[in-house]
């Protein structure tokens, strides 16, 4: 069985654990750096990106997470997680783990009262993905090796670059597990049988 971690410093950890467990993988909430070693893939959950980043620094996760990505191990970031993955952020903000060639704008749809849900098609996953956007970011620009999997009203909301998958919305808040299944398949295809 493959091991998938959920970075458990802050945010909607429990929901990701539940959604991944439905795909018959071992799920590990990650609170300590040593736990990264046993993982085949990792999820950056939704939450507050500034809070998560502070805790990443505080507990010396920064370099180990960069190394994890450098080994081309799959990472899936939702909402704040996607912000952590971006190599560029709008508005003179320093990037965080910076593993994906995407430029992300935080809170791009507005404040909480503008948060919404919608049904949208995601390439290779489904035509009717249940998407909950909460103070969501958008992917403003993507590099040449990045594949755009979904747009909403002309804005990029799901993108993939090799083993990295970034998503503006929160698949973990719905009963629709197809985004998680897709990521689990990405992880499976990366794991070389021993």
């Amino acid at each position: 069985m493959i091991n998938i971690g959920v970075l458990a410093l802050q945010g909607a950890v429990r929901e990701h654990v539940k959604a991944l467990e439905a795909s018959d993988v071992k799920v590990i909430p990650v609170k300590r750096v040593e736990q990264l070693e046993e993982l085949d893939g990792l999820v950056f959950p939704g939450g507050e990106s500034t809070t998560m980043r502070r805790l990443i620094n505080k507990y010396d996760f920064y370099e180990p997470l960069k190394e994890f990505a450098a080994k081309n191990k799959p990472i899936f970031g939702t909402c704040a997680g996607a912000i952590l993955m971006a190599k560029e952020l709008v508005g003179n903000v320093e990037p965080h783990i910076a593993v994906m060639d995407i430029k992300v704008e935080r809170n791009a749809f507005g404040r909480q009262r503008e948060s919404f849900e919608a049904i949208l098609p995601v390439k290779g996953i489904g035509d009717d993905i249940d998407a909950v956007f909460i103070r969501a970011p958008i992917i403003q620009e993507v590099g040449s090796r990045v594949e755009v999997l979904a747009e909403f009203d002309g804005e990029i909301v799901v993108a993939k670059e090799g083993p990295f998958l970034a998503c503006s919305f929160h698949p973990e808040l719905t009963e629709d597990n197809r985004m998680h299944q897709y990521f689990v398949e990405m992880v499976r295809s990366c794991v070389v049988p021993a």
Binding site: G11, A12, Q112, E114, S115, E117
Partner: peptide, 17 residues
């Protein structure tokens, strides 16, 4: 906008904080 999932989900994102 303003659905239960959107409103409750916002609080879910605050967990552990």
């Amino acid at each position: 906008v303003g659905t239960d999932r959107v409103k409750r989900g916002m609080a879910e994102m605050q967990k552990g904080g």
